[in-house]
């Protein structure tokens, strides 16, 4: 179990699970503002939704 790391000046708003990418009922895999303490499993293909200055 691990908590998301934070990169400089970035704020994480949620995540996107690639497995649910084409599932309209699951909001295409995007979950914003997840409930505090909710557990998610992220794989190499998944993404975080962040507010950031650039896309690097």
């Amino acid at each position: 179990m691990q908590v998301a790391q934070k990169r400089d000046g970035e704020i994480c708003l949620g995540y996107k699970l690639s497995a649910l990418e084409s599932d309209g009922d699951a909001n295409y895999g995007v979950k914003l503002i997840p409930l505090k303490d909710s557990e998610i499993t992220l794989t190499e293909q998944d993404s975080l939704v962040v507010v950031a200055e650039d896309d690097r």
């Binding site: 691990q2 908590v3 790391q5 557990e39 507010v51």
Partner: peptide, 24 residues
């Protein structure tokens, strides 16, 4: 200024897959 990006999880975690806990 800032924008909203969808960035790959490997930028944030060393060993994937992992189970993470949201602390937002």
């Amino acid at each position: 200024g800032s924008e909203i990006y969808v960035k790959p999880a490997w930028l944030y975690f060393e060993n994937l897959p992992i189970t993470a806990v949201s602390a937002t």
